[in-house]
Amino acid sequence: MELICPAGTPAAFREAVDAGADAVYCGFRDETNARNFPGLNFSRDELKTAIAYARQRKVMTFVAINTFMRAGQEKLWHDAVDDAVRLGADALILADFGLMAYTAERHPEQRLHVSVQASASNADAVKFLVETFGAKRVVLPRILTIPDIARLARQISCEIEVFVFGGLCVMAEGRCSLSSYATGKSPNMHGVCSPASHVRYREDGSELVSELGDYTINRFPAGEAAGYPTLCKGRFDIAEERGYAFEDPVSLDVMDHIDALRDAGVGALKIEGRQRGKAYVAEVVSIMRRAVAANADERPALLSRLRRLSEGQKTTSGAYEKRWR
């Protein structure tokens, strides 16, 4: 199975390549990708250098242009596609139908992957994208169980890539306006979720309070591991109950299910985390590389080390296991 690894900077890109990635995915330094965070991502020149570095080592580069074209600003997205093709991207990861149509028409030879943000969660949806835009691979939303994936794989003709480690979207990806409701900045239009520009941490007595815009997202008592104030991982009150209404501050880890995913027909395992540092990328990629090759009984020892790096220092199998629902 291919290992698809994140890079938010050229330094992280090189770490991912050196640590054993089969492909590295990255984006341009603007709103055309879903990790449009300050100080992150690639200029055209940086991407060119990165692709050359990867190619020398027989590693592929995927370019994520996976936000939705803002009406009136389509040129930004069109340029991103044209430039990524020109610079030799091995695949473009797209979510917007209009942009997929543009790519399929202007660059018919370009390999097109369906981003998780497109929310193609069933066979008919995938067929629609394969038939209409010639998509070669679909990144499945993190809302399917492994049996769901196996059933889906039997019904479609394109490759399947799934997220196995890193940040976890609790909501169906590409269909969430929670962030823009609280901050005005939208994952789909601006490539940000719970943006740092609207995040504030403050001490209240012994508690660490995290806020997003005008809303308190969490309060961490002294000694408790903190989390980023991502809306869907906040602590809220519902009726008389206080708790994590949607999900704890955990991250996704389905490495225990690698064999089941392979048997289900998954061809590529994706690591989330373009916003994480190069130290994280290097460590995660190298451990995952070994874990994919290892026997099932050797994996736990390899993977326990990863969990220290996780958000809230806890992990979940998420929707891949039915009981998560």
């Binding site: 803002r70 009406a71 209009g98 543009y102 066979a123 949806a125 067929k127 629609f128 038939e131 269909r175």
Partner: peptide, 28 residues
């Protein structure tokens, strides 16, 4: 959702607010 969009090709239909239509190209 996308499955309905795919299956409805060629039939007159409407598109609901939960489908991501963010630009004219997608609408067309």
């Amino acid at each position: 959702d996308l499955s309905a969009l795919g299956l409805l090709a060629g039939k007159p239909h409407s598109v609901g607010p939960l489908i991501n239509v963010y630009n004219g190209a997608t609408a067309r």
